[in-house]
Design a binder for these strands. Sequence first.
DNA 1: TTCCGGGAAG
DNA 2: CTTCCAGGAA
Length: 250
Amino acid sequence: MHPPHPHGVNEEANAKGVREGEQVQAVLMDLYRRMYAAFGDRGWWPAETAEEVVIGAILVQSVAWSNVVKAIGRLRERGLLGLEALHAAPVEVVAECVVPTRYYRAKAQKLKAFAAHVHERHGGSLERMFEQDTDALREELLSIYGIGPETADDILLYAAGKRSFVIDAYTKRIFSRLGLVDERIGYEPLRAWFMRHLPADVALYNNYHALIDAIGHHFCSARRPACASCPLLPVCRYASSQAADAQPAV
DNA sequence: TTCCGGGAAG
DNA sequence: CTTCCAGGAA
């Protein structure tokens, strides 16, 4: 059906829903180079402080980043762009600030819950909270209301500088379309797969996820992906199958 | 699975 | 006008 690819990218994922083998690391790094050639260093996370990263990570759940920028601006105006300030502020005031991020009542409570946790358990200090190993910190983050796997990994990687790979909707979509993982793979298995095959480098994790986001945002949309101009076109099964559909073999 | 429930892009 | 975006809780 499809011609064999020199990198082996187009081979089937195994029964566990992921490609395995010695060459997976080479495939992942090849993809990184292709994305890097197109977008370079993305400079993630776009924030001034670790607390701002946390706040942004909660607010960006299931919304466009442009909405978060508005909310961050409103919080800054009212002096609420910090965990202790958020802890002291009434939920209604916080909610009013984060209206642009959708689900604003829920998100105001999430911000309050995180601020309260850090206040009560770490004296309001993120630095002190981050003074533990990655796994323990991840478990603690996941125990906080409003912090799921992706937000926890955002905080670990971009606020705490810990080596934790971030999975999001783009990651699943892109890597399943590439033919490397099953489209229905869960968060933890996919994260484990990346961390098993990627070099243990925090800076690499940082920009790798940022580049995936760029590819997802600019090319790999759910409905009408722009495969023709995508930097990953040469190694993508989805794109080749789309091309095959558009131009049946003569 | 369903709620949550704003805003820019097309 | 319709779509759908850096998800998580119940």
